[in-house]
Design a protein around this nucleic acid. Structure first.
Lengths: 231, 231
DNA sequence: CCCTGTATTTCGCCC
DNA sequence: GGGCGAAGTACAGGG
């Protein structure tokens, strides 16, 4: 990775056209050829950038550019899309290169997808004798997070949330209404499962005959072998 | 802006939990307090980050951390959301600070302003024999995007949007009503031009005798000479 | 490989 | 300021 702090202006032409007036910025050149132009603020998003795969060509400024104070022109182009980023460098304040190596990458945890995977593996948390039918059971109005059967063989639809809010209860209610019209599935009972269930959501759910299940994520993860990367 | 290249591991706890194993990375510390952790590849998105407003505290590693090779611990926390980013630094390879100043910001193009400029230049897209009167034609209730004349010399008012929604049709309707009361202009016909016109907007427009025109931005840009600053 | 849905989304517009 | 929709969205997972 090469880091350059330089006074520069930047032009981009691709899906849109964009221009950055002359100012001092960080130019990050990654080893895959991508270029990021960062200011000293804002969000994690660069002011402008070029995604890999792309190639950087250093050009000599023409007379008009030299006249304007440009000492170097970087032309970053992407073969596929014909997008182009042009960095006109006026003054370089810092320039250093660093060997970083390949990054092992981010390990995410705690999302709904993981909860769903864990609950599917530990389906007995729904109650003794429960068996998994499938995750993401498709209905006409969208996928039910988990479809299971209880000890009696009756269908159980599970709506899973990290935070159990009223919206989730409404969602599950719609699924249940639809599924109970299907003679192959009916009767279908509902389980609203979340790490945390808001009192209003619990009241609404129980009023509609939907069972609430608070999930202990840490305990579920502790029981899971494949998910215990972090410890 | 401070740039640090360091061998480090990173832990994040907030909306989700995430972990970055020990590796060499770029740590970008912006003047607004935000921190970005970048690898030497991937996209413009950092591996991990903390959005402003946040505060960085440098801690001494405890015995266990020292044992593991940690020389410094950065604790970046956000008061509002209680999100926390912890960077455990093992070895610093580079450390430099730079004064960048406030960035003038990105000037985007290819939005409505650019569409208006292009359509004014390619006014024949409205139909054969059309001529431009002027852009931003002022009326008592605001500027009409484009005023033109058709082959018969009749006035044509154009409302331009990137996304053609009902609001735009209502806007054009108000202009037309006003302009048709002006004997110098009347009769004025309306054209609702956009890159994409919503079905509801189209129905409403056509019901009111307003012609709909879908613009192919790429084709229009391809025909345009002046927009190619880069070449 | 394409499609679809989510995101620690971010960003801009409009009310 | 809050809500909503787009983004040069990026990114992962399923069919």
């Amino acid at each position: 990775m090469r880091l350059v702090i330089a006074q520069c202006s930047v032009d981009y032409a691709g899906r849109l056209s964009a221009h950055l007036p002359l100012a001092t910025r960080l130019l990050m050149l990654k080893s895959d050829g991508s270029v990021l132009v960062h200011s000293d603020g804002g969000s994690y998003k660069p002011l402008n950038w070029m995604s890999p795969p792309c190639t950087l060509t250093v050009l000599e400024p023409d007379d008009a550019q030299t006249e304007a104070g440009v000492t170097e022109v970087w032309r970053v182009s992407q073969a596929k899309t014909a997008d182009m980023l042009v960095v006109s460098i006026h003054h370089v304040l810092h320039d250093s290169a660093h060997e970083l190596g390949i990054d092992p990458g981010l390990q995410k945890d705690g999302v709904e997808a993981h909860l769903q995977k864990l609950l599917a593996e530990q389906i007995e948390l729904l109650g003794e004798g429960h068996t998994l039918v499938r995750r993401e059971y498709m209905t006409a109005i969208g996928p039910v997070d988990i479809l299971a059967r209880d000890a009696n063989g009756s269908s159980v639809a599970v709506e899973l949330k990290r935070r159990g809010d009223i919206d989730g209860v409404e969602q599950l209610t719609r699924y249940l209404e639809l599924m109970n019209r299907d003679p192959h599935l009916a009767p279908v009972t509902g389980v609203f499962a979340a790490q945390e269930i808001k009192p209003q959501a619990r009241t609404l759910a129980e009023d509609r005959g939907i069972r609430c299940l608070v999930l202990d994520y840490d305990a579920m993860r502790g029981l899971d072998d494949s998910g215990s990367r972090l410890f």
